[in-house]
Amino acid sequence: MKILKVKSLCFKESDLRLDSSFHLSEGRIARNIIDKVPFQKKPLSELSSNIFYGGRAKRNYVKNIEMGVPFMGSSDMLKTTFDSLKFISTKLTKNLQSSMLFEGWTLISRSGTIGNTAYVNKDFVDKAASEHIIRVVPNEEVKPGYLYSFLTCKYGYALLTQGTFGAVIQHIEPDYLSGLPIPIIPDAKQLTIHKLILESADLRVQANKLLNEAINNFERKIGESKVQLGHQIGKVNSKSLKTFHKRLDGQYQLLWESLIKEQNVNLALEKVSNVAKSIFVGGRGKRMYVENGITFLSSSDMMLYNPKRTSKKVSKNTPGLKSMIVSKYDILISRSGTVGNTIIVGDDLAGTAISEHALRL
């Protein structure tokens, strides 16, 4: 239960609304807190040269990457890497330039899961984004990193996701964002925050570069794979059905047969079970969500660059919690939904609880 004292002036400003759900909404509380801070506030429109979303056009996807540009949706912008993006045609996509992204912008998801934000670093450049992403182009009156950090913090998030009447907005538009109040803190503090955001953005770019180098080195060692994913037609020996996992689905058998045929005989292979201390699924049971507890992430959350921003928390008394908590250097593999996404646990995720939809290795 939440309790709040409301001044009579608030009733007047809200058209004499008496329902507590309005006055206790996160958006309303955030706006009240921001109104009280001892700094000048300016609407977002005065701190931006443009607030818009990309052009709407038929998406013509191409397989030849030389004939297209990477295209991301509002969920893609939150990922740590963009290796899985599709490419849209540079020739057939109308007004493509209006969909392109530029460094220093803040991106905001405007439909679906509303209010997610991303800072455009070098990895976003030369990529196009859908109309489900609002672009905020900062002007010279505010540091881009500071503007992004405010819109990403809990107060900015509450303003993005809650209307002035406290109801969750199913879509947000640039016109709505234009009126959001932004506190103008001293330039020195803005600069400090801005530099931290730039540093984190550069570190993300460097991390992706090193990850790609490691993957490329590995793939050069084992040889380039010719295996085709997706629908296939072929023949499978009945002996393999009996000896290999005893599965009857054709696509599974054909894929493994292709992998075995191209196996590099000069490489020594070892079963994962021989090099892993354990392989298991985390605890399954009713999750006891609380305000203050252990951070809980799903198998899709764990792939995000800022997974804890809007994460839930589970009680320390949740059944099976011990097997849900992950440790540094654990390898997590999504086992349902989008299967096969893989991360290694670092300092940030160590100690968090991960859904049973991710295998632990």
Score class of each variant (00 low, 15 high):
9 L>C: 06
9 L>D: 11
9 L>H: 08
9 L>V: 07
10 C>W: 15
11 F>S: 03
11 F>H: 06
12 K>A: 14
12 K>G: 14
14 S>M: 09
15 D>C: 02
15 D>E: 06
15 D>K: 04
15 D>I: 04
16 L>K: 07
16 L>H: 07
17 R>Y: 01
17 R>A: 01
18 L>D: 07
19 D>Q: 14
19 D>H: 10
20 S>G: 10
21 S>V: 10
21 S>K: 15
22 F>R: 13
23 H>V: 01
24 L>A: 01
26 E>K: 08
27 G>K: 02
29 I>S: 03
30 A>V: 02
30 A>E: 07
30 A>D: 12
30 A>P: 08
31 R>P: 04
32 N>Y: 15
34 I>S: 00
34 I>G: 00
35 D>A: 14
35 D>L: 14
36 K>H: 13
38 P>H: 09
39 F>C: 04
42 K>L: 13
42 K>A: 09
43 P>N: 15
44 L>M: 03
46 E>S: 14
46 E>F: 13
47 L>W: 09
48 S>Y: 04
50 N>A: 15
53 Y>S: 12
54 G>S: 03
54 G>Q: 01
54 G>T: 02
54 G>F: 06
57 A>W: 08
57 A>E: 14
57 A>N: 15
59 R>K: 02
60 N>E: 09
62 V>C: 07
63 K>L: 08
63 K>G: 03
64 N>I: 03
67 M>I: 02
70 P>D: 04
73 G>V: 04
75 S>Q: 13
76 D>V: 00
77 M>R: 06
79 K>I: 10
79 K>H: 09
80 T>Q: 10
